[in-house]
Design a protein around this nucleic acid. Structure first.
Length: 254
DNA sequence: ATGGCCTCGGTTCGAGGA
């Protein structure tokens, strides 16, 4: 069983790449973020034709999330019952006995800004909801773009980024609060190469110089940690023409 | 020193992303 997450930065632009990637990597579940499509424009037919069921929650221009699955999808939730939000950033479903949560965490723009306050509040609301999901689902996986680099080893230049957005202590503390619910960062269950990142700026030759951050994560409950046999970042599609700025992350569950 | 790219909406630029 393979679970994956990928911020595609517009599914309209990236659909051919998503379909190609699924051909090369026929994962069981793929969570997408930043689809940037209203639900009436979602490419259901193309995704079904590729052998995947799909549920989604989108809006115009910004945000938007989806879960693709080779297996039956049930018990879909598109809103955090503990946090009122007009932005479409969450979708959850049960697939093959695993509770899957797909999250596109707020970016926050700049430490101290209004958007930053919204990010911290949003994360608090997520925490409240996941606390409940943890108690009702022992097999829980929370996949997505967290817009937080957990530690300095997840940052290409920790000195330059110190205290900045995606790295600031309150953001890291909010992520740690999620982990304290009984979740673990699947990527760090295993030995990994140094300077492993999941996002690189389009500017400044970010990818070629590997100036990146690891901000896309798969968090697993203890029952799933026991079943997890690997977690990798797939840098290949970041090398394609007109790529997303994020790379997919894949966890393997026995 | 600054900003350097990409997407969208909708016009020829601004907002947002990270």
């Amino acid at each position: 069983m393979k679970l994956a997450t990928w911020n595609v930065n517009s599914l309209k632009v990236r659909l051919p790449q998503v379909l190609q990637w699924l051909k090369d990597n026929p994962v069981d579940v793929l969570c997408l973020q930043e689809t940037k499509l209203t639900d009436d424009k979602f490419p259901v037919t193309e995704i079904n034709a590729a052998g995947y069921n799909v549920v989604f929650s989108g809006q115009k221009t910004y945000n938007g999330v989806a879960i693709l699955s080779r297996h039956e999808i049930s018990a879909v939730i598109k809103k955090n019952p503990y946090f009122e939000d007009e932005q479409q950033r969450l979708i959850a479903a049960t697939i093959a006995g695993i509770r899957i949560v797909c999250a596109y965490v707020v970016n926050g723009q700049e430490v101290g800004s209004e958007k930053y306050q919204y990010k911290l509040k949003w994360l608090k609301g997520l925490h409240e909801w996941l606390a409940e999901e943890c108690t009702s689902h022992s097999q829980l996986a929370v996949l997505g773009d967290y817009n937080i680099a957990p530690g300095d080893r997840d940052v290409h230049d920790p000195a330059a980024w110190k205290g900045q957005i995606l790295v600031s202590e309150p953001e890291r503390a909010a992520l740690q609060d999620l982990l304290n619910l009984g979740l673990e960062d699947a990527f760090r269950l295993f030995d990994q190469p140094e300077k492993s990142f999941s996002w690189w700026d389009y500017r400044q030759l970010g990818f070629r110089l590997n100036k990146g951050l690891r901000i896309d994560h798969i968090l697993l409950s203890h029952s799933l940690v026991k079943r997890c046999t690997g977690c990798v970042i797939d840098r290949i599609p970041r090398k394609w023409e007109q790529p997303s700025d994020h790379a997919p992350v894949i966890a393997t569950i026995d």
